[in-house]
């Protein structure tokens, strides 16, 4: 999985490219928590995300909770298959999807 970040003032955009599974989520979460220091708006651009499992969903949820206390978080450009996962698990209601 590739992690591409773009900082613009207080806004951090993170692109996740490839697959997020149980192996790379611990590292992903650790990195994200470091990167959001001082960030007011976190944007996930998921156009390159091909696969995500429940471990990845958990990370997204953790990030959303963390950002709640310091700003906001949105997720954009979810493809059809990932959206299906969000729907089946009910995460479509929990996450801020644009």
């Amino acid at each position: 999985m590739n992690f591409v970040k773009t900082n613009e003032g207080n806004t951090l955009t993170v692109e996740l490219i490839g697959e997020v599974d149980s192996m790379n989520t611990p590292e992903l979460e650790e990195r994200l928590l470091k990167e959001i220091d001082g960030v007011k708006e976190l944007i996930f651009d998921l156009k390159g995300l091909e696969y995500i499992s429940s471990a990845g969903l958990r990370v997204l949820l953790t990030m959303q909770k963390t950002m709640k206390s310091q700003g906001s978080m949105v997720i954009k450009n979810t493809n059809e298959e990932v959206m299906e996962i969000f729907k089946v698990t009910g995460f479509v209601r929990l996450l801020n999807l644009v």
């Binding site: 599974d21 149980s22 696969y51 499992s53 299906e84």
Partner: peptide, 16 residues
């Protein structure tokens, strides 16, 4: 490919 990904997801969940 959608079905294959669904299967892959289930395999990961159960294996984990």
């Amino acid at each position: 490919s959608k079905v294959k990904r669904q299967i892959k997801l289930c395999v990961e969940e159960i294996y984990m």
